[in-house]
Simulated scan of single mutants.
Amino acid sequence: MLCALIMAGGKGERFWPLSTDEKPKQFLKLLGEETMIQMTVKRLLPLIPIERIFVVTAAKYVDLLKEQVKDLPVENIIVEPIGRNTAPCIALSAFHISRIYSDASIVVLPSDHLVVESDRFIETIEYGYKFIQNHIEGIVTLGMKPDRTETGYGYIQFNSQFVVKNDSDICESEAAVTRDGDKCGLCLYKVERFVEKPDEDTAKEYIQKGNFLWNGGMFIWKCSTVIKLTKAYLNNTYSILKDIFASPDKDFANKLNEKYPYVDNISVDYGIMEKAKNIYVIPSDFGWDDIGTWYAIERYRDKDDNNNVCVGDTKNLSASNNIVVAKDKPIVVVGLDDVFVVESDDIIFVGKKKDINRIKEIKRNVSK
């Protein structure tokens, strides 16, 4: 039984001032007429029905979620009382989903990523799920084939000499490296390690080596495996969650609010993936991007003849290479290059594009 778990509790601070604590980027229409969470749910539906799609989020975003994904069953909304990073978030969700579907496998994915080729995305998930059905203690991650030197992503290093076929054990063969013979042309490799965001020289080295992929933060594994590995490597989190889920239904919410803040505050990469043994990666090519900063909007939004991204009622006169986002009022940019201008409910922000990666720092300074 394959279910989906969408993580939708982040604050999206790098998209400030449009993304706010009250309405973060997963609930915004950044790339078109649908919000990021709506796009994420929609691309899953050809494979996973809405009754098996779960969303974990913060209590303050539940109403937004219900408004934007109207068909989502209320029991499929998993509420974190407090954000404690991805490892406890996924473990909490695995406990929850296991109570509804006792033998569930889950594909875990963020709510705010772009996928260009939805059919290929579905095909890749199906391929990974088939592997998990045959290797029940395994973990499959989707690694994105890099097409540029990127310092904003983590990377996955894989062993190119060990390719795995869905219906067999690990094969060590030069001939098997490029393709495992499956009609879809997909294959799995043994993961050697997860590495943090590199500097530019290191990123270039990774690209040249050819056995590094971008870490898209997407995993396919059984709920039982999530729980087992949480017990092994994050025993404090496991013990707290086990105690919470042993509570009677009438006491569950109070127990969750009381105990959950004491789970480990750690990412799934640090807490589990760097320690687990049976991790495999599918090199994936479905047109993925982490819509993490305003640079991503520049990559995918239409541009005018002077390379300006214009959203809303905007005009660029003798201006080029700008990102201009208007909400309620017209914005006119004259004689400026390489700037971004963003209007939100509370503020109009003007800055040089070179400072986009400093958005979180700038937000903190403005908020003082």
Score class of each variant (00 low, 15 high):
L186Q: 03
T151V: 15
S168H: 05
I136S: 12
E172I: 04
D199M: 13
Q133M: 09
V140C: 07
A176T: 07
K190Y: 00
Y153W: 14
S160H: 10
L186C: 05
E196R: 11
Y155R: 11
R179P: 00
V195F: 09
T141Y: 01
E126N: 12
Y129D: 08
E137S: 12
V191D: 05
F194S: 03
G185T: 12
V195P: 04
G128P: 07
G181S: 03
K190D: 00
T178F: 14
E137C: 11
T141K: 00
E150I: 15
D199K: 00
K145F: 05
K183W: 02
K145R: 12
V177Q: 11
V163A: 13
C184G: 02
T151N: 00
D147S: 07
T151H: 03
P198T: 09
Y153Q: 03
K145E: 10
L186E: 00
G138V: 10
F194P: 00
C171G: 02
I136L: 09
A176L: 15
K165I: 12
E150Q: 12
G154C: 12
A176F: 15
N159Q: 10
D167E: 13
V164W: 08
Q133T: 08
P146S: 09
G143S: 09
K145N: 12
K183D: 09
R179E: 14
E150N: 14
R179H: 12
G143T: 05
H135S: 14
N159W: 06
Q161E: 14
K130P: 01
K145Y: 08
G181M: 14
S160T: 01
D169L: 06
D169S: 04
F162G: 05
A176Q: 03
I139S: 03
R193M: 12
Q161Y: 06
C171F: 06
G181H: 07
E192G: 07
T149F: 05
E172A: 01
K130N: 10
R193Q: 15
D167N: 14
E192H: 09
P146V: 02
G128L: 10
T151D: 02
D180L: 03
K197Y: 00
I139Y: 07
A203C: 12
V177R: 10
V163R: 13
Y153V: 04
D180P: 02
M144N: 08
G138C: 13
K130R: 15
Q161A: 07
V195Q: 06
V163I: 13
F162E: 14
P198N: 15
P146C: 10
S160P: 09
Q133A: 09
E172K: 06
C187S: 13
D199N: 10
E126M: 11
K183L: 11
V164P: 02
A176R: 09
E150C: 15
E196C: 10
I136E: 06
G181I: 04
T149Y: 03
D180Y: 01
V177Y: 07
G128F: 08
P146A: 01
G128A: 07
I170L: 14
F194R: 08
K130C: 12
I125P: 01
